[in-house]
Design a protein around this nucleic acid. Structure first.
Length: 291
DNA sequence: TATCCGACCTGTTGGC
DNA sequence: TGCCAACAGGTCGGAT
């Protein structure tokens, strides 16, 4: 599933293969893929035609392509959801089964950009950029932990204020962006923190340690092209990443913990799963009532 | 206001 | 072999 490292791999691919090219034609094959573009498919295609793609940018799991030539301050915002792919394909390559949007360019390179999405949780839309260069609709998305301007002190203070648990907080994109279920479980395992640990109990050193593990695991995944369990995540050239072989917690139910050999467990959690080591990641003690 | 949780969506897998 | 339920999970919006 595309989280920050996978989206960054895609962003880098787009920078190489799509940056600087001019859009000739856009074909929307499934309306749900552009559902966040409220003006609809015809408007989406009309406004994109003739635009020149700038350098792709990213915040958390969102990436966007600034546009020139359509009036200032417009961009294509993309979210891959759970199964979205942005592929650069030859014109004559057969259409993928779940091809949703096709972008052709006004050049002779012989390739086009395709948005493919099996589960249609992702999508493309056009938005204006705010003065600080961010698409207006993602102003609520926090900076991600690989952003040099990420404010660690403010993050810790926000955690302490919350009456919630640590994994919920990690998945809250308005608090810290780019972390999804996989890297949350990995970082918690590395930090020896149980997913239900109340955020208000985290000390400043524990927050620093947790952020360090989040950055480490994301950078390690980035270095090998991200995590691919199946064909649902690939880079713009259709290649898989290799970080699934390095996962310590996610998807390893019943397998021995790489620290203590205790079999890892999976627990249903918020309509998904949490993987953890019952020995290294002790559940929090219940709060005593009436004290 | 803060937090929680169901709905959305489709292919795969496992049980019967 | 075929049917069905469970599962995967990021984001949004309604409920509490």
């Amino acid at each position: 599933m595309p989280e920050l490292p996978e989206v960054e791999v895609v962003r880098r691919g787009l920078e190489s293969w799509v940056g600087g090219r001019t859009v000739a034609e856009v074909e929307v094959l499934h309306p749900r893929a552009i559902r966040r573009h409220l003006a609809g498919a015809v408007d989406f295609a009309d406004r994109l035609r003739g635009a020149r793609i700038g350098t792709p940018l990213r915040r958390g799991k969102y990436l966007w392509l600034p546009l020139a030539g359509t009036g200032d301050g417009l961009c294509v915002l993309a979210h891959l959801g759970m199964s979205g792919q942005l592929l650069v394909q030859p014109h004559d390559a057969p259409d993928e089964k779940h091809l949703r949007v096709r972008v052709r360019f006004a050049d002779e390179t012989g390739t086009e950009l395709r948005f493919i999405d099996q589960r249609t949780f992702g999508g493309l839309s056009l938005h204006e950029l705010t003065p600080d260069g961010l698409p207006d609709v993602i102003a609520h998305i926090a900076r991600d932990p690989l952003d040099p301007a990420f404010d660690e002190e403010a993050f810790h203070a926000a955690l302490r204020r919350r009456r919630s648990t640590v994994k919920r907080a990690l998945l809250d994109q308005s608090l810290i962006s780019g972390v999804g279920n996989i890297y949350a479980d990995e970082a918690l395992w590395r930090s020896r923190l149980h997913y239900d640990r109340p955020t208000a109990t985290l000390t400043r050193p524990r927050t620093t340690e947790l952020l360090g593990h989040i950055r480490d695991v994301m950078n390690a995944a980035l270095a090998v092209g991200g995590t691919s369990f199946d064909s649902l995540y690939v880079n713009v050239n259709g290649e898989s990443g290799y970080f699934d072989r390095s996962l310590d917690a996610y998807g390893r139910e019943g397998l021995p913990c790489r620290r203590c050999a205790t079999p890892l467990r999976r627990r249903p959690w918020m309509n998904r799963s949490s993987y953890f080591c019952p020995r290294c990641q002790r559940p929090p003690r219940p709060a005593r009532s009436g004290v």
